[in-house]
Design a protein around this nucleic acid. Structure first.
Lengths: 219, 219
DNA sequence: GTCGCCGCTGTGAATGGGCTGAGGACGCCG
DNA sequence: CGGCGTCCTCAGCCCATTCACAGCGGCGAC
């Protein structure tokens, strides 16, 4: 018997999901708020969780983040309204395993869910490694050629974001949106400043400037 | 029917153990690597595990540590090569229940195993150890370099939580959720205060502050 | 070469995260 | 009731961190 947890505050959608999934032979529990969902996920012994992003009390992002911080590797399929306010990378970054944009097809949901269950418990997210750089999100440690590098919170967040996209060009705007608080109005120069800090600590040639486009982490 | 799990990569020894123990009336499964052993131990419903220290993929120490961190209290009998690289205390500290040094007598193995099974599932986790700190959850005692340290209930709970995640950064929010009553609205400053108390009692450098992220127990 | 723009960096100010001493609230025990 | 131990809030301090600013340097267009 495969046990699922659905965390969704919209009662009609929650009920529809529950009925549909039960018809497929799953055992389904529903939680209607973020805190209730977090608690159930912690202690309920579920095989997977379907999680809405917009939730009262605690956002889906925050919920997954906390779950992962506590070493729970329950597979998570995230549902988001496609209002563009949040984007896909956000969900995956904070520890979800797959992602669907509302409105979604029920068949697609089922297929993704089955894929997730087949994959089983995601192996513990390993340290991120690019070249001789390592970044361990849980221990919040960064090493370069096995030597520890001390980073401030902002530097760490920036490097984290770049290391999840090695070789890709990331624009300053994108970095401001994701590494800095989106609401806060910060000058793009701040990104330049922090890239400068990272270059000093990690070596000049790790972070390439792509003039007019953004930055790229050398692979 | 008593079910045993043998985790041992040396095929000849594994086979010998399996035959011998089956002759004694046990049901015996064998896993040949650390990860396979961990997985079997988690889900296999065994009554006890015989575990080699040197394993491909995941050491025996690490295997037990993870198992205990997940609140599995399966009795574990550990086997180590006596090359002195690891010592007995290591094995016991990380959560094994008994210990044998290779080469061992089969009769002794059997006797220890029977003792372990008779004792039943250890009622509580064994002593948590990090550096020269020991914390015994059952007896509610903490020692530092063999000297007892008196802690209040809250201090104890906080240290307990941190010692189950050595080296990892734990945020104040997470601590409030787990060490304090989640429902209760407590200011994050309370965490700072109690970290201060622990530092006074345990030594200044045991608890590292990771600014903007949380705290980390030095390993 | 010249010009303009983009990015880099040293300086310094404001912020706010974290630490601590003081003390109030509460429960327990004599 | 008074003393004691524990829990937790509060306010003030310290200083690492963050970021704006402004001047400089270099790249690319022409």
């Amino acid at each position: 018997m495969v046990r699922l947890l659905v965390v969704e505050d919209e009662a009609r959608l929650a009920a529809a999901l529950q009925r549909g999934l039960q018809a497929e032979g799953f055992a389904v529990d529903v939680a209607g708020t973020g805190p209730a969902g977090l608690d159930a996920a912690r202690h309920g012994g579920y095989d997977a969780m379907i999680l809405d992003v917009m939730l009262p009390g605690l956002s889906g992002y925050e919920l997954v983040r906390r779950l992962r911080a506590e070493q729970h590797w329950l597979p998570v399929l995230m549902l988001s309204a496609k209002d563009g306010e949040y984007d896909q990378a956000d969900g995956l970054d904070c520890g979800a395993d797959d992602y669907l944009t509302k409105p979604f097809s029920y068949v697609v949901l089922l297929a993704r869910l089955r894929a997730l269950l087949r994959r089983g418990v995601p192996e513990r997210p390993t340290v991120l490694a690019v070249g001789d750089l390592r970044l361990d999100p849980a221990r919040r440690r960064v090493t370069r050629a096995d030597a520890e590098v001390a980073l401030t919170a902002r530097e760490f967040a920036l490097l984290d974001y770049l290391m999840r996209r090695p070789g890709q060009v990331v624009s300053k705007i994108e970095l401001l949106d994701h590494v800095w608080d989106a609401s806060l109005e910060t000058a793009p120069n701040a990104v330049e400043v922090y890239v400068g800090y990272l270059r000093r600590k990690l070596g000049r040639d790790r972070l390439e400037t792509v003039r007019g486009a953004g930055y790229r982490l050398a692979t």
